[in-house]
Design a protein around this nucleic acid. Structure first.
Length: 178
DNA sequence: GCAAGGATATCG
DNA sequence: GATATCCTTGCA
């Protein structure tokens, strides 16, 4: 169990940073389907990234889950991280708060891969699903440009569609960027 | 600062 | 069918 603390939004074929920018393909087809479904893709040949499809059928969009704060089962996440082919030599000593601090690490920690594309994340009987957290203090959320989309033309490259809990230790990237 | 590593989309 | 590129990470 974890709390999502960092995400990025990708919306429409117009979005020059989205996988849907070339239109519908075999890889991104699920983005055109109903919302609430998992879209897991592989990047750089070694990491898988979890997205939640959004928007009604026919409108390709998704939210990339970039970082999660472990709430329960952190040591199981660590085991899953160590089992990943790209695990580092220090994964066994990582602070629990950093076990899912990056889009590739979220999937590694939760044991997700591309085969999980299509899962209904709104179904509590699904192997992985979303829950609405208890109502509490409103988190302090910052908005920045999305990571790793330098290839996109403005305004998509600079659109402030990355959202993160300000100063949260589980947010991805170097401490200075959090 | 950069290599690893393979799928993806596009080009020939 | 070949090739440039990629919504990243861990180590030098």
């Amino acid at each position: 169990v974890g709390r999502i603390v960092e995400v990025e939004a990708y919306i429409g074929e117009d979005d020059g940073a989205s996988h849907a920018r070339f239109g519908r393909t075999a890889r991104n087809a699920v983005m055109y389907g109903p919302p609430g479904i998992a879209y897991v893709y592989r990047v750089y040949g070694m990491y898988d990234c979890l997205n939640v499809v959004t928007e009604p059928v026919g409108r390709p969009a998704a939210v990339l889950v970039r970082a999660v704060e472990p709430l329960e089962g952190a040591e199981l996440m660590r085991v899953a991280r160590i089992a990943h082919p790209r695990a580092g030599a220090r994964t066994d000593r990582l602070p629990a708060m950093r076990l899912a601090s990056g889009p590739g690490l979220v999937c590694a920690a939760f044991g997700l891969d591309r085969a999980d594309t299509g899962l209904d994340l709104c179904d509590a009987s699904s192997p992985v699903h979303l829950e609405v957290p208890p109502l509490g203090d409103a988190p302090d959320v910052i908005a920045t440009a999305r990571i790793g989309v330098a290839y996109a033309a403005p305004p998509w490259r600079d659109a402030p569609w990355r959202f993160a809990v300000r100063g949260h230790p589980s947010v991805s990237g170097p401490r200075a960027a959090r």
